[in-house]
Design a protein around this nucleic acid. Structure first.
Length: 263
DNA sequence: ATGGTGGCTTTGCCA
């Protein structure tokens, strides 16, 4: 089973890029973030035509939004409010054979990495802290779980173009990395992509729109992640970051991240 | 140190 996560930054604008990614990678499941689309406007027919008859989505006008596209039946579709806001950042489904899949869009957190002065950063830290309580509360470590999404945190030194230059930049600050590690340890979860691609290798899934030449400057960050619970660790197959999409016409600033899980 | 780009529907907000 191939699972892709992709922050698509408007599913309606980039529906053709989605089709092109699907043709190339042939995923069984696609988790999307930043769909930016209310449910009544979700491009259901286009997704079905790509080979995904089973769809789950939770969207709102203009901001956020998560969706799961599947070749396989989906059960127990649930969208969860997080830290008291029903802002379409957490969607869960159950796949055949009892795998529970969670699609997460963790808040970006604004520019100033100080929760006292920046409400968006405080919201991000609260969001991750809540997840660290919620998952062990709601799930057992023996369950087959997959967490995928835009976590908006690059935890490793090799997940950013310059560890020292980004220590004070939101997405790579020590307090965010600590929060993410506590969340990861809460069940615990294994970083499936780093299980395959050694942590010493640089790996990015996002390049800013603001760079003059994203490829030449290559100032990327690995913000998009796929984690699995213990019973799935030995089932992890290949992993791939589909960097090519960043060079397509009118791209998302994030690229698809793929993991293969035997099931 | 600063500002750079993009999406949505705004004259700004969010990333």
């Amino acid at each position: 089973m191939k699972i892709v996560t992709w922050n698509i930054n408007s599913v309606r604008l980039r529906i053709e890029l989605l089709a092109r990614m699907v043709e190339t990678l042939r995923p069984d499941i696609v988790c999307l973030q930043e769909t930016k689309t209310q449910d009544q406007h979700f491009p259901t027919e286009a997704c079905k035509a790509m080979g995904f008859p089973h769809l789950a989505f939770a969207g709102m006008k203009s901001y956020n939004g998560v969706a799961i596209l599947s070749r396989r039946p989906l059960a127990d579709i649930e969208a969860f409010p997080r830290v008291g806001r029903a802002d379409c950042r957490h969607l869960a489904v159950t796949l055949p054979k009892g795998i529970r899949l969670h699609n997460l869009y963790i808040p970006a957190g604004g520019d100033e990495p100080d929760p006292e002065h920046n409400d968006k950063f405080a919201h991000k830290l609260d969001f991750v802290a809540e997840l660290a309580r919620w998952f062990p509360d709601r799930h057992d470590a023996k369950e087959k779980l997959i967490l995928a999404g835009d976590f908006n945190i690059a935890p490793l030194e090799t997940d950013v173009w310059s560890h020292t230059q980004l220590l004070g930049v939101v997405s790579h600050t020590p307090i965010e990395v600590e929060h993410l590690k506590r969340f990861q340890a809460s069940l615990p979860f294994t970083d499936a992509v780093r299980h395959v691609i050694p942590p010493k290798e640089r790996l990015y899934s996002w390049w800013s729109y603001r760079a003059r030449d994203w490829l030449e400057s290559n100032r990327g960050r690995r913000l998009d992640h796929i984690w699995v619970s213990k019973p799935l660790v030995k089932k992890i197959g290949g992993a791939r970051v589909f960097q090519e999409t960043r060079g397509w016409t009118q791209p998302s600033d994030h690229v698809p991240v793929l993991i293969e899980i035997e099931d």
